[in-house]
């Protein structure tokens, strides 16, 4: 699964994207897996209320299932316009 990061999430993790081998059932499960890996992930995902998630480039929720999803994106609330 391709996991992509934007803005300060990207900076905190230190990568724009990576391939993650996972059996995580939901976004929350994936976050728990990443947080347990290294401190930089724990720091980036410390407060998920400050984050948004997109599954295959559509805004989604943290309890959404990952079955069939190829790209997960994590980023702060958007500031367009």
């Amino acid at each position: 699964m391709n996991v992509v990061y934007f803005a300060w999430v990207r900076e905190r993790i230190g990568l724009p994207q990576e391939t993650v081998q996972t059996d995580a059932a939901t976004v929350n499960d994936l976050i728990a897996e990443l947080k347990s890996r290294e401190e930089r992930y724990a720091a980036a995902f410390a407060d998920t209320s400050a984050l948004r998630v997109a599954l295959d480039q559509e805004l989604s929720d943290f309890d959404a299932p990952l079955a069939g999803v190829t790209e997960v994106a994590f980023f702060p609330p958007m500031t367009g316009g």
């Binding site: 934007f6 803005a7 300060w8 997109a54 805004l59 994106a73 980023f75 702060p76 609330p77 958007m78 500031t79 367009g80 316009g81």
Partner: peptide
Amino acid sequence: LMDYLKSRAPFWKKEVTSKGAAWVAA
């Protein structure tokens, strides 16, 4: 369109000043 582009289009702004760079919070 403006209201939705502000909060639902995936853009992020970072301001660079002489004091450094900081992300603009929503």
